[in-house]
Nucleic acid binder design. Structure first.
Lengths: 206, 206, 206, 206
DNA sequence: AATGAATGAGGTTTCATTCAT
DNA sequence: GATGAATGAAACCTCATTCAT
């Protein structure tokens, strides 16, 4: 009922009823995967989660907050994983490969979530997309550091423009996931880790 | 204004004032660039175009039709250009470069339109996204043919998986445009033609 | 362009272009028969009549005026016929039968018009329904006079309440036409003249 | 309020406030009586019922559903009454008289409702009118059975065409109610039970 | 006289959010 | 904390009517 409760997100929810919080989040992912961001009605999310409409607003400030929470939880996961991997694998080539692996494994194991992240998020407002970008920044920074380090250790081309290389890596991963979703997530995304890595490494030219 | 534009026009508009048709389309691009697809109210598009609300419906079946018309006009342009380029340049390396050039030049000269195409289109319904994919197919086929031909003539790696390579190329271009838009379209997108082409060709590894 | 032209209905229309006036009226009957009063769009009436939308307004003040004109033409026909018949046949029994015959013959030969008169007119506004009643008044008066005269000459029951008898006659005719329309106007309405007349005469009791 | 009323309620309303359901229904009858079906704006019905616009849609699927509900409640009442009367009174003459009595009493006690039923319903779409006909069928069947039975027991003319007789009875009742409404429902409709019955029985001829 | 493109007011319906219980 | 009935703003689209040509 107080403002703090609604804003406190995780801290409050965990104190109050983490199960219900997670249930709503899971329901939201499911409903959004089916109907997209704008098509996802709060009432349907509530029904799917087995709570009353009003209850949703005890755990989330508004509909947008649900989406942001999904993003925070899942992008956060990928980002943290990437940061951890960077620390764990000092070797740039291995780090890069682990990064691709982490990305494909995380999304590949949860197509519904992937659908929301890749497709439906982009239906939201400018503000949210800005937040997504902000959340992704550590991931991008990790990529940059790996690339720069690799140039220094001589495993990546000296002539590389790091920003362009970063966008190529990210764009390729993104498009690969998109294509996978678009095909109905029917094949195993992780089988593409190796070929994608190789293609990024050697390019297409002879 | 050119003949090409009239091709994209819906049959409804054929009979009427082409200038007004273009005005509404331009207004729609502007408003959608500002507010996204769902945020773009027909009333605002009409006001921006200097016509009455009802007039919009003399030129377009409904709001969705406006979006589709934008797509048809612009994606169609890129697609036709790509097909034409493929025929014009039998040499795969040159064809690929020309393709990147065409993509960057077309979008680079109209940031507002690029914003709609890259970002806001994805706010629309599944059905529309399907149409986008369908419209892009010739472009993808062109890419595939260039890649396959290049493998035969020995300028592209034999080991390449064409689909993955295609996604890398498309993903990289897409992400590059996205980044450009996100930075406010402040720099000249065409300056990236060369480095993007080079990076795609040689990859990042030594 | 002047007000007189629009209001002058028949007098003007006949001077100007009676054919076009009739064409619009016929088109209106057809379209209303298909779609009802509210469903009948002026644009469609115009197209059906082979004229431009605006032309309709040269012959009719507005949409309501078209309906009223249909009524005036057709109800007027029935009413005039009834008045004429009353004068022509001094014998009340014969006059009554001729009236029923006139009613059934007029509508029975034009199911589309009957549909508009019986069903769709009633979709219009209070004001129009009032006008219908006004137009029908002479018909009702004729009925009353026939009944009263018949009582005096001893062919109708002395105990009859003329108003109730009149409503029975009119209600029976009306319901018979309705039923005929509802069945798709598939049988010949005039075959019912005799049995309806007989039933009205003798009632249902032994 | 009574059990009967809940039968007619749509499933949606079952779970909610029956009083509000009735309030909206009553408001709809009132507004439609004033302005007709097409003239009855949902917003005005809501205001009249003392609820928000949206609330109407918690109790009714759409505007058409409101009308159908009115029909269901009231025609249903007349129809059930007629069926019950038929069972209660084996004597055809008495059954017929009771039927007329039921019809006049039901509508005579609620002129506003009668206005909607007699006049405004007919402004609705073909589909709805079909439903009205369907709802009235049991009533028509009851009439037919009474007539046939009466012929067998010798109280009705053997020469009678049952369908024509039925239309005469129904048409006469209908027209009587119409005339009553048209006069502003100023006199007592039930005083006409007897004379209408007598006129139907004996006809107008000597 | 005839055209038909343009107008814009107006109505139904949806759905995120609130708040009394 | 939980509920879910109620709210009411907001938006697309239609179509009768006008008026410049």
């Amino acid at each position: 009922m107080t403002i703090r409760k609604r804003w406190g997100m995780s801290s409050i929810a965990q104190r109050k009823d983490a199960a219900k919080y997670q249930a709503i989040l899971a329901a939201a992912i499911k409903v959004m995967a089916e109907s997209g961001y704008h098509g996802a009605q709060v009432a349907r999310i509530a029904r799917e989660a087995g709570v009353a409409d009003g209850t949703v607003y005890l755990y989330f400030k508004n509909k947008e907050d649900i989406l942001i929470s999904i993003l925070r939880e899942t992008i956060g996961q990928i980002v943290m994983l990437s940061t951890w991997l960077e620390g764990e694998h000092p070797e740039p080539l291995i780090a890069l490969k682990k990064l691709i692996e982490a990305h494909f494994t995380t999304l590949g194991s949860n197509p519904e979530l992937a659908l929301v992240l890749q497709v439906h998020i982009r239906q939201s407002d400018k503000e949210i997309r800005q937040q997504v970008t902000d959340m992704m920044r550590p991931y991008q920074m990790t990529l940059s550091r790996i690339l720069t380090l690799g140039q220094q250790t001589g495993v990546f081309l000296q002539t590389l423009d790091v920003r362009i290389a970063r966008r190529m890596i990210f764009g390729t991963i993104d498009e690969t996931v998109n294509a996978w979703i678009f095909r109905g997530a029917k094949y195993d995304l992780t089988t593409l880790i190796e070929p994608v890595y190789e293609t990024l490494m050697h390019g297409i030219g002879v």
